[in-house]
Write a protein that binds this DNA or RNA. Structure first.
Lengths: 106, 106
DNA sequence: TGCCTTGTTGGTAACAATACCAACAAACCA
DNA sequence: TGGTTTGTTGGTATTGTTACCAACAAGGCA
């Protein structure tokens, strides 16, 4: 079994992925490095909001950033995180199968 | 790319895993079905708090429950979620390597 | 029936997360 | 140099999450 302390560290990383904007960003960066403005243009959000989401991913160690010219370039540091999405899809399909589509409320 | 709506559904499932208590519970259920009282005794929390954490996992479709005698038995519905923990460990190790251990704040 | 045991639900207080706007800093360009 | 672009940081209002206690419901057993 895992200790409570361990669980806390792990959940911090998972929590960082638990937001639609951050999830989409990860998916986007899976295709390669992207600039801030490219990521920003995916959403209809204030630039400060996007910047803060990227900071959350950075602090979790999931992405890194690097200033290049006038652009800030973001990179997916640990691509294996996207492997997980297949399993998330399996959960969703299982929910649909069990007609519990609308139960995922958080 | 993934749509915003899709990202929302997925993030709901990931969010359900993003809490130490729920993460430990998933790890525990990986070993087999467990009763409420077995799960409850892992923590020093009020029973209502534990019950609510289990509800979150249920609503996400990650676990299921079934009344058996006087006990409520919980079961991990989609075991593949634990495959992900290996990658989370990779993130942690990468953070340590880059001396960013203390940056994972959420 | 009365009373444990087992777990869920409701209420609420404390805290965390998220969004916006405004202000700022750094680099680039005219 | 002065203005523009690019992104971050600070402040703050709103909303969401999590914990506790209390009350309840269902089942088992004296």
């Amino acid at each position: 079994m895992i200790t409570m302390e361990e669980a806390e560290i792990r959940s911090n990383i998972i929590k960082a992925m638990g937001h639609p904007v951050r999830l989409m960003t990860i998916e986007f960066l899976k295709e390669g490095t992207r600039s801030f403005s490219e990521i920003f243009s995916l959403f209809t959000l204030d630039k400060s909001t996007v910047s803060k989401h990227l900071l959350v991913l950075k602090e979790a160690g999931i992405i890194t950033s690097q200033k290049t010219g006038s652009d800030m370039i973001y990179r997916l540091e640990v691509p294996c995180v996207t492997d997980f999405f297949g399993c998330v899809t399996a959960v969703i399909e299982n929910n649909v199968r069990r007609q519990q589509v609308c139960l995922c409320k958080r």
